[in-house]
């Protein structure tokens, strides 16, 4: 798994790629919570996520809830097929805000 933060105008873009499993999800969780606690809306680009399990999904859910409590926007961008399968299985595709372009997210800020 690789995750890097790119500051954009008005929000942070987290670029996530590779396999997000229980070995790497603590790092993802920490990165997400750190950005939200810094007061930044967060958009996570998941276009290059080849695998994500329930521990990775749990990091996203925690980020979503923390952002909601802080009244900050939290979105998922370009969901890969593998990630969408897991979101659908867990019915979380109906909970998260999903975007196909960063512009869409920016306009909602």
């Amino acid at each position: 798994m690789e995750c890097s933060i790119k500051p954009e105008a008005g929000y942070d873009l987290l670029q996530l790629s590779g396999e997000v499993d229980m070995h790497f999800s603590p790092e993802l969780r920490e990165t997400i919570l750190e950005r939200i606690k810094a007061g930044n809306p967060l958009l996570i680009d998941m276009g290059n996520v080849s695998y994500i399990d329930s521990s990775g999904i749990a990091s996203l859910v925690e980020g979503y809830q923390t952002a909601k409590t802080a009244n900050l926007a939290f979105g998922l961008l370009n969901i890969s097929g593998a990630a969408m399968q897991v979101l659908t299985l867990t019915r979380l595709d109906k909970i998260f805000s999903l975007y196909t372009s960063a512009e869409q997210f920016r306009q909602e800020l």
Partner: peptide
């Protein structure tokens, strides 16, 4: 139950669904 939106506890659901 999936209507509880909280981190964790989804592994068994995924296994049982698949």
């Amino acid at each position: 139950p999936l209507d509880e939106i909280r981190p964790g506890g989804l592994g068994c659901h995924i296994i049982n669904e698949i």
